[in-house]
């Protein structure tokens, strides 16, 4: 067995399993969705048969009809834009909350650092839906939080507010669920920083905020980008959080896709929306990767 052949076998054995996995559970389903987006809806929901044999012979039931419907109604573009805004606000809020936390963890001494990292990933040990339902209680009209807030507002002469089933509640849920995905890549990046760089900056005359903006932050940009991508992209298509915490006005594109498949049973149109969402997510991921590749780190 030649060395070159053995090297390529080794490479295949290492990269093969994940490749097969991606092909089976990402590549093929995506192709199915592409095909579904070009098919016609069935009479009783689902998909119409792929081909039909009529008097004029056998014909394929493929059309761009569902894409036409998507582009003829600005409602869907608006929904995408709204989802984009929610995801953006979520990513920015996560960044602002996660950065100080990640910095604190990265600069903590060994044992405490391990404990803090454990606390960040601890919520993953309980079910996602249970954690979101918990926010229904926290934000509910009879909750301590809401009552305290309204008592304070009453003192200022402002009418009471509702927290649950509002865009605010959706954003709280989005930020809460995605925060660890921002903290962890940031921490992984900040932990690797050479403390001598901060000493050098200080030695050369930089005050604390100058040390942050000129050394720590620029060096952490790959972590910021990774975190932003890990928060933004899933937040773009999420439906469970608006379903549970949002009102009728907080519907996002994820909810519409779910409705198309489960309620309206218009699979081709649901597939069209999915394809557009996937294309957008890929575009954002590619943009993030491109920006990261321009970094010199």
């Amino acid at each position: 067995m030649s060395a070159a052949w053995r090297a390529s076998l080794q490479r295949f054995l290492i990269t093969g399993p994940p490749l097969v996995y991606l092909l089976l559970f990402f590549g093929i389903p995506t192709l199915i969705m592409v095909l579904a987006s070009l098919r016609l809806p069935g009479e009783f929901g689902g998909l119409a048969p792929l081909w039909e044999t009529g008097p004029s012979g056998t014909e394929l039931n493929l059309s761009l009809e569902s894409y036409g419907r998507f582009f003829s109604d600005s409602l869907y573009a608006w929904l995408f834009f709204k989802s984009f805004l929610y995801a953006l606000v979520t990513a920015v809020a996560c960044l602002l909350l996660a950065y100080p936390l990640a910095l604190l963890i990265a600069r903590s001494p060994g044992k405490r650092r391990d404990l803090l990292v454990l606390l960040v990933i601890l919520p993953f040990w309980s079910n996602f839906l249970i954690r979101v339902y918990a926010w229904m209680i926290i934000l509910g009209p009879e909750s301590v939080l809401t009552r305290t807030l309204n008592a304070l507002l009453a003192g200022l002469g402002i009418a009471p507010v509702e927290l649950l089933f509002t865009p605010f509640a959706v954003l709280v849920g989005l930020v809460y669920v995605h925060l660890p995905f921002m903290v962890l890549p940031l921490f992984a990046n900040l932990e690797k920083h050479d403390p001598a760089l901060l000493d050098a900056a200080q030695d050369l005359g930089a005050r604390s905020w100058q040390r942050f903006w000129r050394v720590t932050f620029p060096l952490s940009l790959p972590g910021v980008l990774a975190g932003a991508a890990l928060v933004f992209i899933p937040a773009l298509g999420i439906f469970a959080i608006p379903d549970i915490l949002g009102g009728t006005d907080s519907i996002l594109i994820g909810n519409v896709i779910k409705q198309q498949f489960l309620d309206a049973r218009d699979w081709p149109f649901g597939s069209v929306l999915s394809m557009v969402l996937t294309a957008l997510a890929v575009a954002f991921a590619a943009a993030a990767a491109w920006v990261a590749s321009r970094q010199r780190l």
Partner: peptide
């Protein structure tokens, strides 16, 4: 007097050049 206000500079063993 903190390091940033001392008229003293250091060349560190690792050089501590800013990589970015």
């Amino acid at each position: 007097i903190p390091p940033e206000k001392r008229d003293v500079h250091t060349v560190f063993q690792s050089y501590a050049l800013f990589p970015h």
